[in-house]
Write a protein that binds this DNA or RNA. Structure first.
Lengths: 115, 115
DNA sequence: GTATAATATGAATATATGAACATATGAATG
DNA sequence: CATTCATATGTTCATATATTCATATTATAC
C-alpha cells in the first residue's frame, strides 16, 4: 500500500482523524449497546414493556415464543441495564430501567421509516 | 404452561399487547438497522466520516485496519444507506448519507456515558 | 414434607458474522 | 497494450449468538 493521492499530508491527517475518534473502549461500549438493540426478539420485548411491567409468561405469550427463549433475552437486556426485574411471589415482573430506551428506539424508527 | 396469576384477563391483555407491537417487518427492520451500528469497526468508520468524506485507504489508515476489512464494512454500511460513495479516478470517496446517523450515535453515546 | 407453578440456567445445535487471505476488477499512466 | 494503484469481492475460518431442550431453582399451596 502506498500514499493515497488524496492525502498529500497523510500522516498529519491520519493523526487528526485518530484524535477525533473516541478511545476504543468508548466505541466498543457504544457498539455493544447497539448490538443489544439489534435483535428482533429484544426489540419486541422492549416494546411490550413500554409504559408497563409484565411477567415473563405474559411477554412469552405476547410474542408467541417459549418461556426459555424470553428468559434468556431478558437476562441480556438486564445485563445491559435496559430493564429491571422485581419478584412478586412466583412471578418476576420486568420493566424498562432507562428513560433513554424509548427515545433510542423511536429515533431509529424515524430513520428506518424515512428510507 | 398455565394461566399467569397476574393476568386474570389474559387473552384480552395479550391481544392489546399484540396490537401495540408493530408488525414483524417493522421491528425486524429496526433490529437490522441497530445491528449495522452494532459493530466497533463500523462505528469507528462512521466516526471518521462525520463532516468529511474519505477514501478507503485513509479510513483503513485511520483505523489501522486492512483495506479489505474496511471495504467489506463499507459495503455493509452502504447497503444500509448510511453512507454513499463517489468515484474520483482511482479513489472511492465515502461520506455519510443520512442526517440521522450522527444523532443516532450521539443519542446512544449519551445513554452509554450515563451508566 | 410433596406437588405445582413460574422462572432461570446449562448444554447442544444451527446460524450469523467479522476478519484474513487471495484474487479480481476498475482506472490512470506510460 | 502492460503496469501500477485503489478498491471490491469470494472463500475460509474462527467466534458469537439465538433458540431449543432438559433440568434446576424459587415460591406458593396443600
Amino acid at each position: 500500500m502506498d500514499m493515497c493521492s488524496s492525502c498529500q499530508y497523510n500522516p498529519q491527517i491520519v493523526d487528526r482523524l485518530k484524535n477525533q475518534i473516541p478511545d476504543d473502549e468508548t466505541t466498543q461500549n457504544l457498539a455493544e449497546m447497539f448490538k443489544v438493540f439489534g435483535d428482533n426478539t429484544r426489540i419486541r420485548i422492549l416494546w411490550t414493556l413500554f409504559d408497563k411491567e409484565l411477567c415473563v409468561y405474559d411477554i412469552a405469550e405476547a410474542l408467541s415464543m417459549s418461556q426459555s427463549a424470553i428468559s434468556h433475552q431478558l437476562k441480556t437486556l438486564k445485563q445491559a441495564r435496559l430493564i429491571k426485574s422485581r419478584r412478586e411471589g412466583k412471578n418476576a415482573f420486568y420493566s424498562i430501567d432507562d428513560d433513554h430506551v424509548k427515545r433510542i428506539i423511536e429515533q431509529m424508527l424515524i430513520h428506518v421509516e424515512e428510507q
